[in-house]
Design a protein around this nucleic acid. Sequence first.
RNA 1: GCCGGCGUAGCUCAGUGGUAGAGCAGCUGAUUCGUAAUCAGCAGGUCGGUGGUUCAAUCCCACUCGCCGGCUCCA
Length: 659
Amino acid sequence: MTPQKSVKETAASLQEVTVRFPDGTELRFAKGALLSELLTRANPRWAEPTVALKVNGTVMGLGQRLLEAPGGTDPVLIEPIFFSSPEGQEVYRHSSAHIMAQAVKELYPNAKLAIGPPIEDGFYYDFDLGRPFTPEDLEKIERKMKEIIASRYPFERKALSKKDAIRFFEEKDERYKVELIRELPEDEIVTVYEQGPFTDLCRGPHVVSTQQIAAFKLLTAAGAYWRGDERNPMLQRIYGTSFPTQEALEAHLKRLEEIKRRDHRRLGKDLDLYNMIDEIGPGLVIWHPKGALIRKLIEDFWREQHLRHGYDFVYSPHIARLDLWKQSGHLDFYRENMYAPISIEGIEYELKPMNCPFHIMIYKSHLRSYRDLPLRFAELGTVYRYERSGVLHGLMRVRGFTQDDAHLFCRPDQIEQEILKVLDLTVFTLKTFGFDEYEIYVSTRPEKAVGSAENWERATAALEAALRTKNMAYRIDPGEGVFYGPKIDLKIKDVLGRSWQCTTVQVDFNLPERFHLSYIGEDGKEHQPIMIHRALMGSIERFFGVLIEHYAGAFPLWLAPVQMKVMPITDRQHAYAHDVAEALTAAGFRVETDARNEKIGLKIREAEMAKTPYMVILGAREVQGRKLSVRKRSGENVGELEIPSFIERLNNEVSNKSV
RNA sequence: GCCGGCGUAGCUCAGUGGUAGAGCAGCUGAUUCGUAAUCAGCAGGUCGGUGGUUCAAUCCCACUCGCCGGCUCCA
């Protein structure tokens, strides 16, 4: 199996070449030198252990040789890659995945290898085992991985012809690997990596030795289809993660704990915000009073902003005749997400999955002039979409949800300006909730789509132009547009750095055509308006779920369902507590009084667990001085205040919408 | 939808082929207390649902509903 080195290559390996390091240092090396030799000799005092090297811009493993470097330049440019970079993590975790695969093969020789890539925060490997992995299996695999790491196997790269590679993996009965290799181009050189007795198909690169994987943990096992296609066999996937130090691993595990602690499904129950129950059905939310109040406050804010930004509010029904959905094209392109029609007096009606056709009907209710445009119809519109049972997830993925929807009708020359306005409103809205960072994607034409290629291009160009004007960095997401037009998707980053898709802005050249929308232009002739669909928070349900996790349930004062609790220490302060609560309520705050015959410690504990922003503690001293002793949920003691100065403080905090 | 795990009191969870327990919450009483849990008593469950095996099922089996972790998909 050892590939033969050509005579020419051997000769070449004796020659020398200059290597330039990032600090400008240049050293001479034999062309056949191992990259790890470069590193030792150069002693470059790099702060972190080097995972791999970037050689003339290509990431290479330290076990590779200088002569494999691309470009064949002299000098050869070298850059270190540390674990702290995304590339370093990829190499490190990819190697970790190989170690896991070796462990699995040693423990379960019949397991077939599929694929095992690095992913964000870790790695996975898919196996065909014929049965699922149990938690005990994972423990055994972890122990075996530790042995493999202790064995200090070097990762050795071997190149094979496609034919040899197929034969090699056929002999091992690794049918998935064979399938992968067969799809490579005919003349492709296939590389494999060996670590001790284990060989895996792999492009690489890898760390030098298994010993380099210092700290790892296997996290979960789950089913996954071969190549993500449900018609293919179900494989068994093991997820794991690895880090160069035990501390870094533990920090990561702690973060996972933190994510669990913030889980909106747990907090939603603990804080009594909302629920989803069997009797009603999966993916259908009931909002309990506290959650409903928060929702109301969010919606009030939304309405206020939309009024200021020139939107008109509209309302539309939950069902409409099937014909409407035929005309809109939803029945052709969105059917799999729609519920079965309801027959009423012989006419079929359909539960709405989107609000657009209704807003279009409002547009069509008058003859429109170019002077009327742009028209902006906004609605907190509740829609119902069939989602497969396995994809439902708390508030993040439901079957009935309310979009903060709007449809803008404008002239072609107004598109860019309208999108700019939408972006402004989006940024302002998100910022109010403490989201300052986001990822932006522009999705282009999918396979299943209506409308001409030319229209798609025009629309996409408008979206990109607006983003460039706003200096907002974006990435292209090819083929991910909705069937009726390209879109901008904005994923917000929460306090833990996780991304959530909320905002979407979609240009639509198609619905105006299907519904024969028109306006009378300056020239007195009919023209077709452009339509823009947009939702800033996306779905109120999802946005609320994200907010719960973002704030860890501790809603800022302006959103907190109960803003403060008035807590008399004994019943001798009840009368004063009543007066205080009345004064605060009269000032417009949401106040509860805890007049139970309980110790103050318990009252504070319960207010803390309910994440109430302020606690107003009233004992004999406060009654005496007609004051308030104010404590924040952070534990901070604000001290003794007079009622008016407390109210002023609260008013400031609410009007600033301090996060 | 698919693979796997789970479903026991309002919540978090023990448990067993002979019809169930704890802590918290609830109710009652006592305690009048200064910044994250006062004490005692009481009450609370057709063990997700349906069917089957069995003298006997919460436990075993089948089906079904739901939840959780993934796959796929999306606001």
